[in-house]
């Protein structure tokens, strides 16, 4: 089975490469593009460590073939900071509120939270927990993750207000 030519936009840049169609998107990102932020935690789409943003939706890149993502627009944790290098409010908030420990779930967690706050800019704690339920963390017990997302939401709302 031959390799196919794959083209997509990743973190705002056009990328292309040759890959077997069966290559999982997570492997394409990590091994061919060197974007090692998203991780593999479970292989069965339960843990969410591989979460990336695909065409404006949160997806688990361990359960998606690169062929399926051909032509898509992908954002990973590496693409969340602003062009000037300033961190996304979620990245700041996770640090500020101790929303991570070993860091392995963190890229998927933040990337999912990024989309969650696009879908619902003012979530309640319950909505945050439900919205983050596709991402497992073994270290934090989630409490500080919820806190960080709540804080980032407030920060982003304040930023938006200030800009208006």
């Amino acid at each position: 089975m031959s390799k196919m030519h794959v083209k997509m936009t990743v973190n705002g840049s056009q990328v292309e490469g040759l890959a077997e169609p069966r290559t999982l998107l997570i492997h394409f990102l990590r091994e061919q593009l060197g974007l090692t932020g998203p991780h593999i935690g479970c292989d069965t789409s339960h843990c969410g460590a591989c979460t990336v943003d695909l065409d404006g939706k949160s997806v688990k890149s361990c359960t998606l073939f690169v062929a399926q993502a051909n032509g898509a627009e992908v954002t990973t944790i590496e693409g969340l900071a602003a062009a000037d290098g300033s961190l996304h409010p979620l990245q700041e908030a996770f640090r500020e509120h101790h929303g991570l420990q070993c860091g392995f779930c963190t890229p998927g967690m933040i990337t999912r939270a990024y989309r969650l706050l696009q879908e619902n800019p003012t979530p309640s704690d319950e909505e945050i927990r439900f919205g983050m339920s596709g991402n497992l963390c073994r270290c934090t017990g989630y409490q500080n993750i919820v806190k960080a997302i709540r804080a980032a939401a407030a920060e982003m709302a304040a930023g938006k207000e200030a800009a208006e």
Binding site: S45, G48, K57, V59, L116, M132, S133, G134
Partner: peptide
């Protein structure tokens, strides 16, 4: 059904 990421695909 499942979780948010899975529901999105």
């Amino acid at each position: 059904i499942a979780d948010p990421q899975i529901r999105s695909l």
